[in-house]
Simulated scan of single mutants.
Amino acid sequence: MPAEAAAHNPTIAAAPIRNRSDNELAREVRRALTRTPNLHSTGIHVQVRHGVVTLTGWVPHRAQVQRASNAARSVRGVRHVNNRLSVRTRGAGGH
């Protein structure tokens, strides 16, 4: 069984998560954002450089700024999160 093989072989069990590329981390952060409950992530842009995530763009509610940071930090391999999100409510332009 592959699970048993991984349990007996430390090389297989210890995946090199620290060596993930910035592109892989960006993909995983985007996935974490879309899976986070009560987070409207379509206005969020993700950049990663040397494991440091920068979130830019907007969310519709102030509480979602912190949710986005928490989601990005939850991704293994992320070293730091720079959260530059702003709050933009729908209809703010006078609808």
Score class of each variant (00 low, 15 high):
S69E: 01
V48Y: 00
V81T: 11
V46C: 10
G57K: 01
A71E: 00
A72S: 05
T56D: 10
R62C: 04
H50G: 11
G43N: 08
T42S: 04
Q47K: 14
T42H: 07
R79C: 09
R73V: 04
R35W: 11
E24N: 09
H45V: 11
Q64D: 01
A26P: 11
T56L: 04
A32K: 00
Q47T: 14
V78F: 07
D22Q: 03
V48M: 08
L25R: 05
G51H: 00
R20G: 03
R76A: 14
N70H: 06
R35M: 11
V65T: 12
S21E: 15
R67M: 09
A32L: 11
E28P: 00
Q66W: 02
E24T: 02
E28K: 15
I44G: 01
N83Q: 15
V46P: 13
N83F: 09
V46A: 10
R20T: 13
T36D: 14
V48H: 10
V29I: 15
A71G: 02
L55E: 08
R84K: 13
R27E: 12
G43H: 05
R31A: 13
S69W: 01
Q47M: 14
R27Y: 13
H45R: 10
S21H: 11
T54L: 12
N70T: 08
V65I: 15
E28F: 03
T56R: 05
A71C: 06
D22F: 03
S21F: 10
R67N: 12
R73Y: 10
V65M: 05
Q66C: 00
A72Q: 08
G57Q: 01
V29T: 11
V59D: 01
Q64W: 08
H80P: 12
V75W: 09
S21Q: 14
T42P: 03
V78S: 12
H80Q: 12
N82H: 15
D22R: 00
R62W: 12
T54W: 04
R49G: 07
Q64P: 02
H50C: 05
T36V: 06
N82T: 12
V48K: 02
V53D: 03
D22T: 06
V75T: 04
R31M: 13
V48S: 02
L55I: 09
G57D: 00
N83K: 11
